[in-house]
Amino acid sequence: MGANHPGTVASGVETATADDTALLLDVMLGKLATYLRMCGYDAAYAMDGDGEDPGDERLLARASAEHRVLLTRDISLAGRADRSVLLAGRTPIVQLRELESVGFTIELGERPARCGACNGPVGPLGDDEPIPEFAPDPTETTLWRCRDCGQVFWRGSHWRDVESRLNEN
């Protein structure tokens, strides 16, 4: 992805892959959470669940208890976390480039691993599972389902659009 971005600061993080790094994103990074989930990261978002802002103290406690790297645009909050990345960018693509510049692997896998909506694990759609009317024919396109919320996924135009954006220089 891109060059080093001034203003991006990683504390307690050397490298990160979707297989070995769990993340917690503050309330300012909801769109970024979706992209990171598409890249396979366990990316919990502060507003998941009841939709209420948990506040800084609860975010810090959760990041510590769950051994998550806190991603934030808040200088003060980043400085108080054991492991954090302070992001300067305002858009998800710029933020992804910032993460890559500090050692995060940013790429789409061959199949979805995490639900973009709820962060649940995604697995192959079973033969006996119902298929939404809007989904493509499973004999022509591989389908997956979120094991937590039931959303159905496939590698369609949205996947190709995100892949194209990730590969831009």
Rank of each mutant, 00 (worst) to 15 (best):
E66H: 12
F104M: 07
E98M: 12
R114D: 03
R83D: 07
G55V: 13
G30C: 08
G30W: 11
T91R: 14
E107K: 07
P130Q: 03
C115F: 09
L87K: 10
R90P: 00
R97W: 09
A33W: 13
G103E: 02
V69H: 09
C118F: 10
E129F: 05
G116L: 05
A43N: 09
I93Q: 14
S64E: 15
G120R: 03
R97N: 13
G30I: 13
P138D: 03
D128F: 02
R73M: 05
Y41E: 08
T91E: 15
P121H: 11
K31N: 15
V69C: 12
G79T: 09
N119I: 01
T34Y: 05
D56Q: 12
A61C: 04
L59Q: 08
G51R: 14
L108A: 10
L59M: 15
S101I: 13
R90E: 15
R58P: 02
E133R: 07
R68P: 06
A43W: 12
H67D: 15
Y41R: 03
L36E: 01
P92E: 09
P112L: 07
T72Q: 13
Y35L: 15
L70P: 04
M38P: 02
R73S: 04
D127F: 00
E110H: 10
H67I: 02
L59C: 08
T72E: 12
L125R: 09
R37E: 03
E107N: 02
D127G: 06
E66T: 06
N119Q: 06
